[in-house]
């Protein structure tokens, strides 16, 4: 087959045809995967909520609370027999070694951190990526954040005068992680003052 010549008409029609077919094909694939992507995201989120909170029966309606620094945080209250057992806060920081880190923080009814789960991060493997286990090590109370809150303990790395041991060789990641936690608590305290968090679930 002879090669098509590079006339203006040929070039325009070729480029149009190529982009048109590509766009149609991508639209089709997008449609196919849209639901699965949504489900994968929801699944990751609800698994994280279950991990960071005490056992609960059902999740209340999530709501968003403005935080001091820009973006709002999403709150997921969890109930057992109509009683609030805790609230999961999806919090974040932009101060990570590689920027954005997203953390799900579980706060129990006494206002202490019950658990956390790192949702998204791009920290260095083997260093900053250890934050998923480092801060929940129950054998080392000085590096664990579980059961603490900013009013009882200063949630900052020891280097900055806080009470939490930073990950070895990853002070920046540790600072960022604690920044995300403090942001969650700050928003949590603001919500409590506004009494948006009801202890009883109203719609049963």
């Amino acid at each position: 087959m002879a090669k098509r010549e590079s006339t203006f008409f040929n070039m325009v029609t070729t480029l149009f045809a190529v982009t048109f077919i590509a766009a149609a094909a991508l639209g089709f694939v997008h449609d196919l995967t849209k639901e699965a992507i949504e489900m994968a995201k929801m699944k990751a989120q609800s698994e994280a909520i279950e991990k960071v909170l005490p056992v609960f029966e059902e999740l209340g309606e999530s709501f968003k609370v403005a935080s001091a620094a820009g973006d709002s945080l999403e709150f997921f209250p969890a109930y057992s027999r109509g009683e609030l057992v805790g609230v999961a806060v999806k919090t974040f920081t932009n101060k990570g070694f590689s920027g954005f880190i997203s953390v799900m923080a579980g706060i129990d009814t006494e206002g202490n951190l019950f658990g956390y789960e790192v949702l998204e991060h791009a920290e260095t493997p083997g260093l900053g990526s250890k934050m998923g286990v480092w801060f929940s090590n129950s054998e080392k109370p000085n590096q664990s954040v579980i059961g603490k809150n900013p009013r009882s303990h200063k949630l900052e790395v020891t280097k900055d005068g806080g009470e939490i041991d930073a990950i070895t060789a990853s002070t920046i990641t540790s600072r960022a992680f604690l920044d995300a936690l403090n942001r969650a608590f700050e928003a949590y305290y603001n919500t409590n003052q506004n009494q948006q968090l009801k202890t009883k679930k109203t719609t049963l």
Partner: peptide, 23 residues
């Protein structure tokens, strides 16, 4: 390859590659 005029082959290839990457 024989349908694509020489002068626009690179943009055409890039669109094709980008489509598969998005998939």
């Amino acid at each position: 390859k024989s349908l694509i005029p020489d002068k626009v082959r690179i943009p055409s290839f890039i669109v094709i590659i980008a489509s598969f990457v998005t998939v």
